[in-house]
């Protein structure tokens, strides 16, 4: 079963960077992963909450990742998300 990563965006009223670039980087770095912006049946391994600024106002209380949830507020945060996906023990 491929790694499942659920993406959740903030609403993007005044983003300081291109939030969709995070998804593009994830898809490039983890081509085998199942990366989706919408809910699917069954659990997700990771949840990435991609926020356009430090306010991080996206609603995500209802989202759970078996191996964790990462909240990104700048492009720099991609590194910690990628590291978490790489290091996760999904066995």
């Amino acid at each position: 079963m491929p790694v499942r990563i659920r993406l959740k965006y903030c609403g993007g009223c005044n983003p300081r960077y291109d939030r969709t670039a995070i998804a593009a980087m994830l898809r490039a770095d983890f081509p085998q992963a199942d990366i989706a912006e919408t809910a699917k049946d069954g659990p997700d391994h990771f949840v990435a909450v991609i926020c356009g600024c430090p306010v991080a106002c996206a609603s995500h209380d209802d989202l759970r990742g078996l191996a964790g949830k990462t909240i990104l507020t700048s492009e720099k945060d991609y590194g910690k998300l990628a590291a978490a996906v790489r290091s996760a023990d999904l066995s």
């Binding site: 993406l7 959740k8 965006y9 609403g11 993007g12 969709t20």
Partner: peptide, 8 residues
Amino acid sequence: KPEYEDLM
């Protein structure tokens, strides 16, 4: 659009 739905 997923990138706007949290507000919309």
